[in-house]
């Protein structure tokens, strides 16, 4: 099996076993040059990639990802188009999509899971679908052997965190701060705390996302976590017109920093 077929959890666990930290860049699906940007990020050493499927009302996203989102939506690009384009993409690391629940709900839960499966997309992250509402989606995803990645927040209670860690697949998406996506000047105190709370509960990979915008922040948080997700900093490169090249360059800076630490 290739890593893309192997899935996210197995691939990340292998990297961790090899003594490496996991780097998962986020790229807005449908944005001009995004397919090339995914390839560039993979080449630059990403362990997996999270691809955003734009939604009209992204309540967990800050200005950067919203801006990229709006550009894609105003071009009339549909979720199915993005999934089909990813299907034809030749990269050999596992992929996840990130979108909001209504996109999946409208598509049909079973149908969405099966389209992901056909497109070679292993994981899916739905930030507005908390565990207590996730059972239908989780069983649809499981049926097609897709990895429904759950989020854990700094406010999550200990008891509930245990359930999230038990039921997530792929990895635990530990939200690093109280707030929405967007690069911040400093690493939030809460990032390491949530990472260590998750690590105490599970053997699954624990990755911190939201508010990780520099290689230095990535290194700091990954001292506790198994790695991190980098979103807005990367999308900003696309918005600035840097294209796949700038994305590749930034991902390799993160890679280098994580590997040298």
């Amino acid at each position: 099996m290739t890593p893309r077929e192997e899935g996210i959890e197995n691939t990340l666990l292998q990297a961790i076993a090899d003594g490496r930290k996991c780097l998962v860049p986020y790229i807005t699906g449908g944005f001009e040059g995004y397919l090339e940007a995914i390839s560039a990020a993979a080449e630059a050493g990403a362990n997996a990639i999270e691809i955003g499927i734009p939604f009209s009302d992204p309540v967990m996203d800050g200005p950067t990802i919203q801006a990229a989102n709006d550009m894609v939506l105003s071009d009339g690009i549909t979720p199915l188009q993005i999934i089909n384009e990813i299907a034809s993409l030749d990269v050999d690391i596992p992929l996840a999509v990130m979108t909001y629940y209504n996109v999946v709900y409208r598509f049909g839960l079973e149908r969405f899971a099966s389209n992901l499966s056909e497109a070679g997309i292993s994981g899916i992250i739905l930030p507005d679908l908390p565990l207590i509402e996730a059972s239908s989606w989780k069983s649809a995803a499981n049926t097609k052997n897709r990895e429904a990645i759950l989020l854990a927040a700094p406010t999550t209670t200990q008891e509930h965190l245990k359930k999230i860690c038990d039921e997530t697949r792929g990895f635990v998406y530990a939200v690093g701060l109280l707030g929405i996506t967007g690069a911040r000047k400093e690493l939030a105190e809460s990032a390491k705390i949530i990472a260590s709370r998750c690590k105490e509960m599970t053997e699954k990979p624990v990755l911190v996302g939201v508010g990780i915008g520099t290689p230095d922040q990535a290194v700091k948080v990954s001292k506790v976590s198994d790695g991190c997700i980098v979103g807005s900093a990367i999308v900003q490169k696309l918005l600035d017109g840097g294209g796949p090249e700038a994305v590749g360059k930034l991902v390799s800076e993160f890679r280098l920093a994580l590997d040298n630490d």
């Binding site: 629940y101 507005d128 679908l129 207590i132 989020l151 854990a152 406010t155 509930h160 939200v175």
Partner: peptide, 9 residues
């Protein structure tokens, strides 16, 4: 209760 996990508590 379809909100981000942050708001569940």
């Amino acid at each position: 209760m379809f909100v981000p996990e942050t708001l569940i508590p």
